[in-house]
């Protein structure tokens, strides 16, 4: 029996395997480079970048709950210039596609970040964050409204030749409509899902635990929600999907692929076990071999109803 082929080409981005690390959970690369062989990842999606440096929310920014965590980091980042100067040279040393998550407070800001990264050596694609639940302007304020989703994705499309991958919000009534809207406005692929809006209250003080009052739930708790949304989106559009939500081992990644995802990204589990993504790669390989499948692609969208 031959070794299954894990390599894929997603929106023109060649990856050694379909397992990426999700934005906001892997920093900008150097943070985990001592522990994880970055060259073995399918791709790295770096933490959200805006036009100017941004300080994020006040602390506490993170609280663990059963089966997950609720975060309200607030997209703290060094700005596009800071990212290119401080982190991109490090990332260029590795043979792994770098996808930059971008965000803005206006559609024009998103487009400007995209334009500045267009043609920059070492960037394989852009993930458009229209779904962060933790900032007042931008983020999910765009991604839960079809008109503004169209405006942001269209504006970014006009300013870059890089593959663009909108990251969808889970808290919408019809994910198919948002998926189609993104594709109609030039999306090459879709990422889903972002964290789910959530809140934790301390019952003694009766105050919200997070300084931001609310945050976004991620981790195993949201996995079945993500599977359902990936399944819905896969039936609505033909572009490849990157599934995110509660992957802790290969089983959940395989489930996403069966539901219709071409690739997956490991998020919160990076904090629990930094080697999760590499373990998922090995687990998918074993699964494909055990089930007589020649490539990862043969698994995509094979759910039996």
């Amino acid at each position: 029996m031959t070794t299954p082929q894990l390599g894929i080409t997603l929106a023109g981005i060649r990856m050694k395997n379909p397992v990426m690390v999700a934005s906001g959970t892997f920093g900008y690369g150097p943070e985990y480079a001592d522990l994880v062989d970055l060259n073995r990842l399918g791709a790295i999606v770096v933490k959200g970048i805006s036009l100017e440096p941004w300080g994020g929310n006040r602390t506490p920014r993170l609280v663990e709950v059963s089966g997950g965590l609720v975060n309200a980091i607030g997209l703290q980042n060094p700005g596009v210039q800071g990212f290119v100067a401080k982190y991109l040279p490090f990332l260029r040393h590795f043979d792994v596609p770098v996808i930059v998550n971008i965000w803005g407070k206006t559609a024009e800001e998103y487009a400007e970040v995209a334009a500045r990264l267009d043609g920059t050596e070492g960037i394989a694609g852009l993930e458009i964050n229209i779904s962060c639940p933790n900032i007042k302007a931008g983020g999910s304020a765009f991604g839960t409204n079809l008109e503004s989703t169209a405006r942001v994705v269209g504006a970014v499309r006009r300013r870059t030749r890089l593959p663009i991958i909108p990251k969808l919000a889970p808290n919408v009534s019809d994910i198919a409509a948002f998926a189609r809207c993104c594709v109609e406005n030039g999306a090459d692929a879709l990422s889903l899902i972002n964290s789910y809006p959530a809140m934790v209250i301390d019952i003694e003080s009766r105050r919200p635990v997070l300084a931001n009052v609310t945050g976004g739930l991620s981790g195993p708790a949201i996995h079945p929600i993500a599977v359902k949304l990936v399944y819905d989106a896969a039936r609505a559009v033909k572009v490849p999907l990157i599934a995110i939500g509660g992957i802790t081992q290969a089983r959940e990644a395989i489930e996403f692929m069966i539901a219709g995802a071409s690739a997956v990204a490991v998020g919160t589990a990076n904090f629990t076990e930094p080697l999760t993504a590499l373990e998922v790669v090995d687990g998918i390989t074993r699964y494909l071999g055990a089930h007589g499948l020649a490539s990862a692609g043969e698994l995509v969208g094979t759910v039996r109803l």
Binding site: L35, T59, Q76, N270
Partner: peptide, 15 residues
């Protein structure tokens, strides 16, 4: 001592 997430500087929880 601040409430930490990843412990390696990636998540920016304990700033």
């Amino acid at each position: 001592d601040r409430h930490m997430g990843c412990g390696v500087g990636a998540c920016l929880a304990c700033v």
